[in-house]
């Protein structure tokens, strides 16, 4: 079981952590949503929780809570630019479909 990230994603996360001045790493997870299934959670981590699984990729720590892990196992986090927009993208092999608005998915 693993969650990884691309070099581009790692670079951006390092920059953000430096700019923010604090943080152990990032948290990656899922939560249920009314729209159509699930949505990703992407947050900074200041205080890890003991139940978290920790992965390390390109020198950056990724924390995943036990419940989310089964839905995002094998996911690779990437950082891309689309037009003027730029941000993080989850390449998740478990995803079956996405909501039309592009904000939630189901597995």
């Amino acid at each position: 079981m693993a969650v990884t990230m691309t070099e581009a994603a790692a670079q951006h996360i390092r920059r953000s952590l430096d700019g923010r001045g604090k943080g152990e790493g990032i948290r990656v997870g899922v939560r249920t949503t009314g729209c159509s299934g699930m949505a990703y959670v992407l947050e900074f981590v200041d205080e890890p929780v003991s139940e978290d699984q920790v992965f390390e990729s390109h020198g950056t720590k990724v924390y995943v809570d036990a419940k989310s892990l089964v839905y995002i196992d094998g996911t690779e986090l990437d950082f891309v630019r689309e037009g003027l927009n730029e941000g993080f993208k989850f390449n998740n092999p478990n995803v079956r479909g996405e909501c039309g608005c592009g904000e939630s998915f189901n597995v």
Binding site: R31, F88, E103
Partner: peptide
């Protein structure tokens, strides 16, 4: 999928919010 940003702990926004 919409591109995401990293949120503060506990502040990850719900979709459309």
């Amino acid at each position: 999928m919409a591109l995401l940003q990293i949120a503060e702990p506990g502040q990850a926004p719900k979709p459309h919010q």
